[in-house]
Amino acid sequence: MLANICSCYLQFLPRFQPENLEHNKTIFERVNEIAAKKGCTPSQLALAWVHHQGKDVCPIPGTTKIENFNQNIGALSMKLTSEEMVELESIAAEDVVKGDRYTNETPTWKDSETPPLSSWKAT
């Protein structure tokens, strides 16, 4: 049932419209190829990429299944070369993916009033 709800919802998102979907599938396929070459899942590759963004960045994946949790933990031991990071950055660049992530009616972080990080004070 959940799969039907998800696929039904996705059909309305700009990235999954026919004019964008074929192009975006090539990005998905490329990430799968890199993951296979590294001997990991695409999810592990994505988590490893986030983990490699710097010491002030930490991926926070959510799951309700222990096998997915264990798979997520496996991403922490993955090492990505600078060349792999550059390749992943180029694949996922905002101007490469076609179609917005959400419809104009979906509220996102862009609609928030979060103060800039420079104004935050540690307590």
Rank of each mutant, 00 (worst) to 15 (best):
T108K: 02
P59I: 12
S112W: 01
T63N: 08
E94D: 13
K38G: 08
V31E: 07
T26K: 14
T64F: 11
V31T: 10
N32M: 09
P107K: 00
V86L: 12
T108D: 06
A92I: 11
H51P: 02
T26P: 02
Q11H: 12
E94N: 09
P61S: 13
P115A: 10
A35F: 03
L76V: 14
T41G: 08
F16R: 00
V96A: 06
E33L: 14
A75F: 07
E33H: 12
S119T: 15
P42W: 09
Y102P: 01
N24T: 10
N72I: 07
F16V: 00
D95T: 12
V57R: 09
F16L: 01
A93W: 03
E89I: 03
T26F: 00
K65G: 04
N24W: 05
E67I: 13
A36Q: 15
S119C: 04
P116N: 10
L80D: 10
S77I: 05
E87A: 12
D111V: 00
E22R: 11
L21S: 07
G54K: 08
K98Q: 15
H52S: 14
P42D: 12
H51T: 13
L117M: 04
V31N: 04
T41I: 00
Q11C: 12
I66K: 14
Q11I: 12
G54Y: 03
W109A: 11
E113I: 00
C40R: 05
N70P: 01
F16N: 01
N24D: 11
I91V: 05
E22A: 14
R15T: 02
A75G: 06
E22V: 10
M1P: 15
F69V: 11
R15Q: 15
G74S: 12
S43A: 15
L21G: 04
S112Q: 02
K65R: 14
K38H: 07
P59L: 08
A46I: 10
D95Y: 12
R30I: 01
V97M: 02
L47Q: 06
K25G: 02
F12Y: 14
A75K: 07
